[in-house]
């Protein structure tokens, strides 16, 4: 094995054979070491939640990774390559600019007037919406109000417990913002924005967070707004129908009515852990 071992000879066969063996071991050890060092760097850079989201996003079925512009009908079947973060997406920038220039007038979904009530649910147009069922409302003091949207609220009905982030906690878009619990179901709700939590507010059964920007201002280009909301909600109801379709259930019509107030209570046989995971994009 080594020059000091009994029977070792400096021959071509020995050098080639042992050289290949040590090269393999070195490659495997280097791979492990590189992964360990990169992991340490990620943990120190507080990139854990970003990595969790990347991992969760990559494991989503193709139809759940649909681009916002595919949902509105602008692009056919395009999958989002950016983890729903349109801030770095050239296609979105191009299409958003085109929309501003009124080129989107020819797209039926974009022609419709933004509605407050969509399929019986409340989606105010002065808010921006995240794909994980949270909304954002810019306040006059430069902060944002962050809450859970109407479909998200109906999915869990009355949650048994809500874990809010601490005041001063830093949020990352697509990182966790709330953790909701109902029965044995525990679901992480994704933050729609980057920011720092300045307070939590309760108004009857409703609750929301106040968030201030980290670096001067918010970049909200990745959030859905105006005429995008209705096709997205329709898409979400379709996803909900699919998620609810357990092995023994019958197919259901996507447009047979409007969502009930407490969907979980109306469908006690459904696998709510799975349904909430799908709808809130939580792993």
């Amino acid at each position: 094995m080594f020059p000091w071992n009994y029977g070792f000879h400096w021959t071509a066969a020995t050098v080639i054979f042992l050289g290949a063996f040590y090269a393999v071991l070195a490659a495997v050890a280097a791979t492990l070491l590189a992964a360990a060092l990169r992991s340490r760097r990620d943990v120190r850079a507080h990139a854990v939640e970003e990595i969790r989201w990347q991992s969760d996003f990559d494991s989503l079925p193709a139809r759940d990774r649909l681009c916002r512009h595919a949902i509105t009908g602008e692009l056919a079947g395009r999958e989002c390559p950016n983890g729903f973060d349109c801030r770095t997406c050239e296609t979105h920038t191009r299409l958003a600019t085109a929309a501003v220039l009124a080129a989107t007038r020819s797209i039926p979904a974009m022609r419709e007037k933004p509605e407050v009530e969509i399929y019986g649910m409340n989606y105010p147009v002065d808010r921006l919406y995240h794909r994980g069922h949270t909304w954002v409302h810019p306040a006059s003091d430069g902060t944002l109000t962050v809450g859970i949207d109407d479909l998200g609220r109906r999915l869990l009905g009355g949650a048994d417990a809500i874990d809010f982030p601490q005041r001063g906690a830093r949020l990352r878009a697509n990182g966790p913002v709330f953790t909701l619990r109902r029965g044995s179901v525990r679901v992480r709700v994704l933050s729609p924005v980057d920011g720092e939590v300045v307070g939590a507010h309760f108004s009857g059964p409703a609750w929301f967070l106040k968030v201030k920007p980290l670096n001067g201002g918010f970049d909200l280009r990745h959030l859905l707004s105006g005429p995008e909301i209705k096709p997205w909600v329709a898409h979400e109801i379709e996803r909900l129908q699919l998620a609810l379709a357990g092995d023994a259930a019958l197919p259901t019509l996507a447009d047979g009515g409007i969502p009930v107030d407490d969907i979980a209570a109306a469908c006690p046989g459904a696998d709510w852990d799975a349904v909430c995971g799908v709808m809130f994009l939580d792993g």
Partner: peptide, 21 residues
């Protein structure tokens, strides 16, 4: 299920998560 129900919408039930409008 679509094959079993002959793709006839009348054979489909309304989801319990929805109520009539």
């Amino acid at each position: 299920e679509t094959r079993r129900h002959g793709e006839n919408p009348k054979n489909f039930s309304v989801s319990p998560c929805l109520r009539g409008e």
